[in-house]
Design a protein around this nucleic acid. Structure first.
Lengths: 126, 126
DNA sequence: AATAGATGTCAGAAAACCTAACATGAGTTT
DNA sequence: AAACTCATGTTAGGTTTTCTGACATCTATT
């Protein structure tokens, strides 16, 4: 029994400014990871990016992996293998293994005490 | 046992454009209800509104009440009384009776078949 | 030293949002 | 009916946020 209340999991909801606040990544980084195929946010008709909770979770994981010292190639591999694992583990290919399980499989949860989101002066925390 | 996964309940996350898409209300309406004190979204440093899931739920309820034929005064009363009820029902004054319970108390869930969110041409559904 | 990877920064343009004002249609009141 | 009020539409001018693309920089590696 997965998670209740994930109706919004894939709904494009927040603009990049909010995502920077929630992830501690810069907009530049987020767009760069997109160039590298790590995420693919929805777009408004005007081409502005809108991220879902899925995207957010993915970006948070990217951040963790970066802090663990991985580079793009490594992160790509993690995500590729994750896709593979999902295919092996079950039906189609989408969302078989949970984020948390996944994380336990791929890297032993480092302490990573550093909180972000306040201090740098994001556009929504005065 | 309330709802798991409500870490984001009060986090200012989405801009008004997304809220219009999610609620079926126009930006004009949403701002008008704010003028009437029905909601009070957070603001970015640049004064742009950011809504939380709480705000969203509230706006959805407003929409239902509107569809039930209530006017501003009626809606205000509903929310005022809801606050009262919460005080009667329990401890502090915040979030005692759930949205759904509340709705059952105040108005018998009308059919309201009309779905929205697609058709009018929101900025994010091409 | 040259190269590659990852991110910062800047510039110009476009999108989304802001407030304020006026317009309108449906009900009310006088 | 004329005048009002309520709720919403519409428009205008300005500001904030985001967009893309280019160039700068820093660190490692070759």
């Amino acid at each position: 029994m997965p998670n209740a209340n994930n109706e919004h999991e894939y709904t494009p909801l927040f603009p990049i400014g909010v995502v920077t606040g929630q992830t501690g990544l810069t907009a530049r980084q987020i767009r760069y990871y997109e160039q590298n195929g790590l995420i693919k946010p929805a777009r408004t008709n005007g081409k502005q990016r809108l991220y879902s909770f899925q995207d957010l979770a993915r970006l948070k994981e990217i951040r963790r992996l970066l802090q663990d010292g991985l580079n793009m190639a490594g992160i790509k591999k993690v995500f590729r293998d994750k896709g593979l694992l999902n295919e092996i583990a079950g039906e189609s290919s989408e969302k078989k293994v949970s984020e948390t399980e996944m994380r336990k499989i791929f890297h032993e949860e480092l302490k990573q005490a550093g909180r972000f989101n306040q201090g740098k002066g994001n556009f929504f925390n005065k």
